[in-house]
Each structure stands twice: as C-alpha cells, then as structure tokens.
Computed example of a mutant assay.
Amino acid sequence: MASGWSLIIGLIIVVAASLAAWFLSPKGDNQTLWRNTLILSFISCYLMWAIVFLAQWHPLITPKRSDMRPDRVPE
C-alpha cells in the first residue's frame, strides 16, 4: 500500500547514493563533472518519481465511473 514512508525511504536512498557518488567518484580532472552528473541524476529521478507518486496518491481530479449513463442515479 502507498504511504508517506515511501517518500522518506526513497529520499534516504537518494541521499545515500549521492553521498556514495561524492566519495567514490573517480579521482582526476573530471571528478567534479562525475559528482555533479551523478548527484543531479539521482535528484532528478527522485523528483520525477515523487511527483508521479504524489499525483497518483492524491489526484486533483476525482475519477468518475464510465459505466453509468448520466441520466441514471445509483440507488
């Protein structure tokens, strides 16, 4: 089931992956490029997942049944 803990657990995983990318990026001339690319990728993927997750968890528009005729009211 969906819960608010999913967002927190996902955030913890992204922070851990970002810290790992910070400390384990290969040393050299492109170290800053590696760090920035990995950390921005993790954050972007997390934000996209979180926005889609929240949009499905709390939809702005309430779904309507399509198997009913508009002139019939359920009893």
Rank of each mutant, 00 (worst) to 15 (best):
N36Q: 09
N36V: 13
T37K: 13
T37G: 10
T37Y: 14
L38Y: 08
L38K: 10
L38P: 00
L38N: 05
L38Q: 06
I39G: 01
I39A: 01
L40F: 13
L40T: 14
L40N: 12
L40K: 08
L40H: 09
L40V: 11
L40P: 00
S41T: 15
S41G: 15
S41D: 07
S41H: 08
S41Y: 12
S41A: 15
S41W: 12
S41C: 13
F42Y: 15
F42I: 03
I43R: 01
I43M: 08
I43K: 04
I43S: 09
I43H: 00
I43F: 12
S44Y: 00
S44F: 10
S44V: 06
C45G: 09
C45K: 02
C45N: 02
C45T: 11
C45R: 04
Y46K: 00
Y46H: 05
Y46G: 02
Y46F: 15
Y46I: 01
L47A: 12
L47T: 05
L47K: 03
M48F: 15
M48I: 15
M48E: 03
M48W: 13
W49I: 10
W49K: 06
W49P: 00
A50S: 13
A50Y: 02
A50M: 06
A50I: 02
A50D: 03
A50Q: 01
I51E: 04
I51N: 02
I51R: 06
I51M: 07
I51C: 04
I51S: 10
V52F: 09
V52R: 09
V52N: 10
V52D: 10
F53D: 11
F53H: 12
F53M: 07
F53G: 07
F53Y: 15
L54M: 15
L54T: 08
L54R: 07
A55V: 01
A55I: 01
A55S: 11
A55C: 02
A55N: 03
Q56R: 13
Q56K: 13
Q56F: 14
W57I: 00
W57N: 06
W57G: 02
W57M: 10
W57Y: 15
W57F: 15
W57V: 01
H58N: 12
H58Q: 13
P59L: 12
P59H: 10
P59F: 13
P59K: 07
L60T: 10
I61E: 12
I61H: 02
I61A: 12
I61D: 06
T62D: 06
T62Q: 13
T62R: 09
T62H: 00
P63N: 06
P63W: 09
P63G: 03
P63R: 05
K64D: 14
K64G: 08
K64E: 15
K64C: 09
K64F: 11
K64M: 14
R65K: 05
R65W: 02
R65A: 07
R65N: 07
S66F: 04
S66A: 07
S66C: 01
D67G: 03
D67F: 14
D67N: 13
M68G: 04
M68C: 08
M68A: 11
R69C: 04
R69I: 02
R69N: 11
R69A: 14
P70D: 04
P70Y: 03
P70C: 01
P70E: 03
P70I: 01
